[in-house]
Write a protein that binds this DNA or RNA. Structure first.
Length: 230
DNA sequence: GCGACAG
DNA sequence: ATCTTGTCGC
């Protein structure tokens, strides 16, 4: 194996110490691998997203497993856990990861590639929720966010597939990708065991008629309560 | 000191 | 994220 140094505690109980949480992110970010290390092409994909109930007291996470070729869902699960921490920009993963891991455990098999709603390395310390999820589980992951957290980018062209690099402190940390005409671009960034070009390539492969790629779109519907049966 | 700020 | 109806546009 190639385990490398053991992982620092990924989810310490929240005690309000923002500085300590940030320091842990810097430590975990060192474990992120930005090279494509997943089955190519992948056979199964998984999409993850989080929502809240009871005025935020309960965190609800959705996990959807899909066939990579047909993009059809194979399994869908929802996990509910008590919310332990408030939302703090830059520390999102500490708040949402517990629920996501619970949802992941419900899948009957491990996916070849994971898509998480939120950023990968397009984060102040390069550890957005998708990257944290990847390092914590060892699974290849990609971050698909609807808005920028850090960095700047030019307006991408109007055609699906047009992209503009997201830059931060001289680094290309992601891409603003036009996934659908007349819609704000998605911010795609590598999570773990995926390169930036690889992340964009895989997201493009999952686009149909909507703004979000299928894995994240399906998880989004389950997590956000507007999953009107059928 | 004044904004910005994933979900 | 969530609170919320109808409405403008393709």
């Amino acid at each position: 194996m190639n385990a490398g140094p053991p992982l620092p505690p990924a989810l310490p109980d929240w005690n309000g110490d923002v500085a300590a949480a940030r320091a842990l992110q810097v430590e975990l970010a060192r474990r992120v691998v930005l090279a494509d290390a997943f089955p190519r092409p992948p056979r199964t994909l998984a999409g993850f997203d989080v929502g809240f109930e009871d005025g935020g007291a309960t965190t609800r996470a959705a996990a959807v497993l899909l066939d990579a070729d047909s993009l059809q869902p194979l399994e869908a699960h929802v996990a509910r856990v008590p919310t332990r921490m408030p939302y703090i920009p830059g520390l999102l993963s500490f708040r949402e990861l517990p629920a996501l891991l619970d949802a992941l455990a419900r899948l009957s098999r491990a996916p070849d590639l994971v898509f998480v709603d939120g950023h990968g390395i397009a984060h102040p310390r390069r550890l957005g929720i998708a990257a944290h999820f990847g390092v914590a589980t060892g699974l290849p992951s990609i971050g698909v966010a609807k808005r920028v957290l850090v960095g700047e980018h030019a307006e991408p062209g109007p055609v699906r597939g047009d992209a503009a690099p997201l830059l931060h402190r001289g680094e290309a940390i992601g891409v603003a990708l036009r996934s659908k005409p007349r819609c704000r671009p998605l911010i795609v960034s590598p999570g773990h065991r995926v390169s930036l070009p690889g992340a964009v390539e895989q997201v493009l492969r999952c686009l149909t008629r909507y703004r979000l790629p299928e894995p994240t779109r399906l998880a989004d519907r389950l997590a956000s309560r507007r999953d009107r049966g059928a």
